[in-house]
Design a protein around this nucleic acid. Sequence first.
RNA 1: GCGGGCGUGGCGAAAUGGUAGACGCAGCGGACUCAAAAUCCGCCGGAGAGAUCCUUGUCGGUUCGAGUCCGACCGCCCGCACCA
Length: 845
Amino acid sequence: MASRFNALKADAAWQKVWDESRTFSARDDSPKPKSYVLEMFPYPSGRIHMGHVRNYTMGDVLARFRRMQGMEVLHPMGWDAFGMPAENAAMEKKVHPGAWTRENIATMKAQLKRLGFALDWTRELATCEPDYYGHEQALFLDLLDAGLVYRKESAVNWDPVDLTVLANEQVIDGRGWRSGALIERRKLSQWFLKITQFADELLEGVQGLEHWPDKVKLMQENWIGKSEGLKFRFALDPNAGGTDQVEVFTTRPDTIFGSSFVAIAADHPIAQHLAAGNPEIAAFVEQCKLGGTTAAELETQEKLGWDTGLCATHPFDSEWKLPVYIANFVLMDYGTGAVFGVPAHDQRDFEFATKYALPIRRVVSDGDRADPAFHEDEAYTGPGTLVNSHFLDGMDVADAKRAVIVRAEEGGWGTGTTVWRLRDWGVSRQRYWGTPIPVIHCDSCGVVPAPRDSLPIVLPEDVTFDVPGNPLDRHPTWRDVDCPGCGGPGRRETDTLDTFVDSSWYFIRFASQPDDKPFDKSVAEQWLPVGQYIGGVEHAILHLLYARFWTRALRHMGKLDVAEPFAGLFTQGMVTHETYYRGEGTERVWYNPEDLDIAGNGATLKTDGAPVDIGRIEKMSKSKKNTVDPTGIVDQYGADAVRWFMLSDSPPERDLEWTENGIEGAWRFVQRLWRLFDQLAEQKDADGADVALDKKLHRTIAGVAEDVEALAFNKAVAKLYELTAAIEKASPSASRTNAIRALARIVAPMVPHLAEEAWALMGNDGLIADAPWPEVDPALLVDDEVTIAVQVNGKLRDTLVLPKGAAKDVAEAAALASENVQRALEGKAPRKVIVVPDRLVNIVA
RNA sequence: GCGGGCGUGGCGAAAUGGUAGACGCAGCGGACUCAAAAUCCGCCGGAGAGAUCCUUGUCGGUUCGAGUCCGACCGCCCGCACCA
């Protein structure tokens, strides 16, 4: 009598065995080929969610599969533990950010262990601990020594009521999330890393990333945004802006004869100078500063301009004067902070010119029209021939660009330049819960690096969050220190580092974690680059670019001989869920599905029984409260069923909507597998070969290996369903016994607890986790017969079974002999016959 | 606004330019059972009695042949530098 698989008992038992035998600890000195499998480490937000389960299950299957292929696998786990939510919790719940974070880590670690991931916990790290961030401070000083760090003024979101800096996320419709005050952009002196120094190599490096998704590579290239153009100076008249010229940058020098205005940023020095002497301009500049700092906000706000009364002289015609505007859509951070406007051939300029009644003049012909009058309702930005442009007339856009650059350089008023969309990385954060920036400010010595022997500079524990702002600013005993230069009174930097810095090198620290330095070069190089990195597509740009930069900066400093940190990248889809809410706008309250009774087409709140509104299906997030806690489900069905379900159905790169449908199916399949293993253990060995089953088995071994390598787990799962069904249907034979034994190993990476239990039950020694992946017999992968499709005029009319490799004329003759084909031809003679060997015959009549 | 992606049955999906819907979920019918659970067998895109026709967001194009390639459009999603 077959027993049922007791998942809860098996989970606990095998997790204990793996733990005690340190099965998954990676050995630096192993002679085996090394494989580094890494999933993006989690932020310890409280409890793990389904997105984590999905992410880590994928990595786990690959890690276990690589072990079975005979590799020494590094598969570590840690915590991206600094960040804002801990400070918010401190304000709301009166707990210390450190206590809150460490408690979350303990909870989440237990939850991850419960899923039986093949992780090397001996290398666990948390970025909020001094034994991590102290090394980060040392690396920051290295970058400082190498000249890759500098200070400059940069805008932040300033809440004038709470008197604090807000993150973009905390600015909602231009207002502070707590105070509701209108946010303004304010400049602060901040630390920057010179990522732009590596712009060229970061861009070129993208090409070599063969195992990255094309979409991510494209996004990185566009983000870095190399553009060739012309930087040139307009003479200004009158000299009222504090200077007699303004430098602009353009990627379209070809359109220079279509310009009708010059626009400068509100924080351009000329605008600042004018504002100082004119209250109206000062008011306009202030108005431009309202609102947040995000690109989306800046680019969608209403375009505003202020005519300064200054005139710019056209470089090719000293009689041609262009008005100079201060405009809120010009960014000081890109190019020179000033542009010339060509309304006919730039949509933003078109809208601006329409609003302020400026001339719109055609200089690029789209082929239909060449006259200067431009009456279209949007700018023409496509290719064409230059018109109304003096010496440029008749050239195409590319030639005209070159011609203008040549003239500008000859005339000495401009130079051809490369500019990057990429800006240097601002790493200063006016917050407590982050890595302290290891520098000291001194009135006499200026900014002085903290002495290396003072590292780690540890965050003070005795801080309060009862008032907004950075507690480090108001902590004199921590803040006030002697200047290492002159010994006089100094003040620690109270800004902390962006948490993206923490995540820019953790994968190196996983590979090597000595006490006395960030990492050991030769040990780290044994593991790096990460062979397969897996995480959410939301990190496709920033985190990945920063980590690539950090790695290149280390190479530049001679500290690590690795160019790219992640050889393979996979971006998984998000786990989504319906949302539930009441109320509108700022009054809206979100509800967690666990607090609701959800039936067919409605949902009610358990506490009051009244209905709630059902919102859209969205990414699971704390703010929308549409998260599902995996723990209850793991306790109910066992780790293997949850893992199996996470791998089934949805392709891993696509979003997965969590529904409770399907976990039942996964549970049933786990039991189905168990019955096969359990029955095999009871029955006597059978004799005889079953060639069809042998073929199915070997095709599955090969197919699953291919799918797992490609992280196409849903396809591997489908193949395993088919193999299981085939085994169940087969009569007892030596082939069948062999197939069941092999099946245990094929499913082992996905349902490891069940597989270990089966392995032991079938009388094997050791762990299945250490067993090799089954070998494929290539002879069993080929068929001697194939089914080919027969089409008439591209429509399927019949199928034929032919010997594999049948000659074209044999296939054609067989197709023409088909009754269905003759009927479809209606007596017409074939004009052409296309034969694709072993696939199809298409008869064109 | 800019950049990137996605769109196939009731649902999740599969398909080197070559038989659309493998596999799973849900559903329906049946077997076993006193009954239920579990399990097993069968059906399962739409229309039609059938031959057959229609069907991969919409429209157009390339091709002997398009879910797949190209163009335009519609819808949804992600990122936009201080969320992680």
